[in-house]
């Protein structure tokens, strides 16, 4: 019973923080609200019994990725108070584009079949032991390929961010 209340509390907080991300004027405040939103989503993962995902979400997203976001914001010039003014046509097209994305999302969720019923669902599937078994037996190739992905990301970051040594 307590999990139901927790779910509603976390959902309320997540939506509120997400709205604060959009509405706050200061980009650094936006980032900090996004960190809070990530924490509430990690709470949702815990409620779904996906505890490894919750830990990773806090360590990687709230910890590392948000540091990157902060760095990007600090690389910008924040001295200018005024935002560049967008024309009405740009705003209208943005509204149409995001609205149609919403329609696509809702439509695909409505059409999604095969949602397992709670009775047959094994709640221990998201635990770290089972995740490790699946990752290192069934999804071995994607796991090894992901290391190549990380390698290429490293090379790309160094290529872009570093001047070559003379």
């Amino acid at each position: 019973m307590i999990t139901t209340y927790l779910f509603y509390l976390l959902s309320f907080l997540a939506i509120m923080f997400a709205l604060m991300v959009v509405f706050s004027k200061n980009p650094i405040h936006s980032v900090l609200y996004l960190v809070l939103a990530f924490f509430t989503i990690a709470g949702h993962y815990v409620l779904l019994n996906a505890q490894f995902l919750a830990a990773v979400h806090i360590i990687v997203y709230a910890g590392a990725i948000m540091v990157l976001f902060l760095f990007v914001i600090m690389l910008l010039n924040l001295n200018k108070e005024t935002e560049p003014h967008k024309s009405v046509w740009l705003k209208a097209s943005a509204a149409v584009a995001s609205g149609s994305l919403l329609v696509v999302l809702v439509g695909s969720l409505k059409g999604a079949a095969g949602i397992q019923s709670a009775k047959t669902f094994d709640a221990s599937i998201g635990l770290i032991e089972n995740l490790g078994q699946t990752l290192f037996n069934d999804f071995l190739l994607p796991f090894e390929v992901s290391s190549i992905l990380l390698l290429s990301a490293m090379v790309g970051a160094v290529m872009l961010g570093k001047k070559s040594i003379k």
Partner: peptide
Amino acid sequence: LLAVQSTP
């Protein structure tokens, strides 16, 4: 699946 018991 391993028989691991853990709840939220």
